[in-house]
């Protein structure tokens, strides 16, 4: 279930479909409802909060990402998306709150949780004195995979990311988009059940982006879960089936894309939720040349 608060949706369907609900105030109110046990969410975070100095970056976010969903997290710059995802993936210790991946607590059993996750963090360096091929291999070997499996998957991943021609080039000499792709490949190598991708399409060319999207689509179709953060609404609307809107460290809305956008375009709905749109007045001089 996506919504961490009780939703009045009847649960008498033959196949219990996860019915995420739009909510603007995330309340922690799990109801013990009868019927088939609800599926364990792929990622479940509760009351995550983080403060840097006197700035509260994340102010109590609770969210359930259903297994098998393609989940978008959108928000303006500095909304706390990266901080939230870092805390949910075990890279940044939260001040408050918990996170669990397929029921495994990220901060109690980090090694087990990380085995289930593939992470593409934003704004971190790579071991860029390795070649692209070496970097993916390194990520696989660090995960304790055997050499043969790693070697086969590295070849496949390089082909999927269209990086065969540059496999032997040092990552430090890669362009921004190529770097993003090689980092994504390193996150995929151990076939995780949950992929957490922070800004995966930044600086990636349209052709590669389309390739990556089709990889992610078939990954979701076969039961995997993808979480992407982005501030490109259009992309999220086309790609994701669920979306959460974050601003100022708080969750403003979460649910299926159709629920959240409520008939409008996601972008308009986002601007409405975040409320940051200033009117076009005031720059008259820009038209005076």
């Amino acid at each position: 279930m996506t919504a961490p608060h009780s939703d009045p949706v009847p649960h008498s369907e033959p196949v219990p479909q996860p019915e995420p609900a739009l909510h603007s105030v995330p309340a922690l109110n799990p109801d013990p409802r009868p019927g088939p046990a609800p599926k364990v969410p792929a990622l479940s975070i509760r009351g995550l909060a983080k403060r840097f100095g006197d700035k509260i970056a994340v102010d109590g976010i609770s969210l359930d990402v259903p297994a098998g969903s393609f989940y978008g997290i959108v928000g303006p710059n500095g909304a706390g998306k990266t901080t939230t995802l870092s805390m949910a993936t075990g890279l940044l210790r939260p001040d408050f709150g918990t996170a669990a991946v397929h029921g495994v607590d990220v901060w109690q059993r980090p090694l087990d949780a990380k085995r289930l996750m593939g992470i593409l963090p934003d704004g971190v360096r790579l071991f860029d004195r390795l070649t692209g091929e070496q970097l993916i291999t390194y990520a696989g070997l660090l995960r304790g995979m055997d050499r043969e499996t790693v070697a086969t998957r590295v070849v496949d991943l390089l082909a999927a990311m269209d990086l065969q021609e540059d496999a032997g080039t040092l990552v430090v000499d890669y362009s921004a988009g190529m770097t993003k792709k090689i980092a994504l490949a390193s996150a995929l190598i151990h076939a995780p059940r949950l992929l957490v991708l922070d800004e995966p399409f930044e600086a990636v060319d349209p052709v590669s982006a389309a390739n990556i999207r089709s990889i992610l689509d078939s990954y979701v179709a076969s039961g995997g879960t993808v979480i992407v953060s982005s501030h490109v609404m259009d992309l999220v609307q086309r790609m994701c089936d669920h979306v959460a809107v974050v601003a100022n460290g708080r969750l403003l809305a979460a649910g299926t894309v159709d629920e959240v956008r409520a008939g409008a375009s996601l972008e308009d709905r986002f601007v409405q939720l975040v409320g940051g749109r200033s009117h076009t007045e005031g720059l008259e001089w820009l038209r005076t040349f």
Binding site: E133, T137, Y138, L141, G144, R147, E165, T169
Partner: peptide, 22 residues
Amino acid sequence: SGRRKGGRLGLLGVLPASPAGA
């Protein structure tokens, strides 16, 4: 800088395929 095809893992292909070896 020139593009280079892969195929050479260097030390990663020589040392034991374990996390510590990697």
